[in-house]
Amino acid sequence: MPFLSIPARYEYLDEIREFVAGVAGQSGFGEKEVYSLQLAADEAATNIIEHAYAGMSNGTLEVSCNLQGDSLVIVMRDYGKTFDPSKVRQPDVTTNLSKRQIGGLGIYLMRKLMDEVHYESIGNQNILTMTKRRG
């Protein structure tokens, strides 16, 4: 299974997006879907770096990506603090400029772009599973 293990730092986001795009492209996903998958993976990884590994620069992020049936499944595993994105309040994306929330947008996009987002914490591991069906 295609697998990537990288330092949990923002400068590696490029590598995650390329990895996901590579697998998605080979799996027959179209350009629009590939962009969505890259964006969702970026937002998920950004949240892990920002929250699970808040203030730590030596964390590890493991990413696997593979086709199961007609769905692309991205799994991200970290060993940082427990951070459940489903507990984050959804931002109101219709309100006016002054009330518009700055936070929570990444998670909101992740949920909108993917068909399923599932989070679990087992022992010292946090496991985020995101699934998108081929259109």
Partner: peptide, 19 residues
């Protein structure tokens, strides 16, 4: 080529300041 929510946030903060 690409912009994540990190870029959206920069735009939003600047729009608030400018308006």
């Amino acid at each position: 080529e690409y912009m994540s929510s990190a870029g959206f946030r920069a735009l939003l903060a600047t729009q608030r300041n400018c308006k």
